[in-house]
Amino acid sequence: MKVTQIVEPLKAEIVVGEKIAEQDIAGGYCGDLLSDCIANAKEGSIWVTIQSHPNVVAVAVLVGMPCIVICNYQEVNEETTKRAQKEGITILRTSLTSYQAVSVLSSLGIPGTKRHG
């Protein structure tokens, strides 16, 4: 599925989206502990989280996640935005909670995925 197709269902605002048109997602991961995400999220997933500091972009890059959905309308600071622009990571921001966002993504047919199966 294209990242562009999830923006409206998530009622999301595109905070960073220079590369959004060319991004696909194969699955999803949800979590706020960075050690958990880096170890368990699968490449090509969309990442649903309430963390919005610049290091989430580092984690997305290291895992190979093209898009981060920041929930609860958390503030996204300039450093995070700059880092995402530099790395070509899309950042969406929504007022939905993580659970609500995952429910929407799930109803669109995006499965939960995990590294190693």
């Binding site: 972009v57 580092a58 984690v59 890059v61 290291l62």
Partner: peptide, 27 residues
Amino acid sequence: DFQSAGDVSGELKKVLQQVGFPPSFNR
């Protein structure tokens, strides 16, 4: 320095990809 935290690992990832190791090893 949380702003640039992760940069060294990111650079390492790119180098590992260039060297051509399999993705699961790089991960």
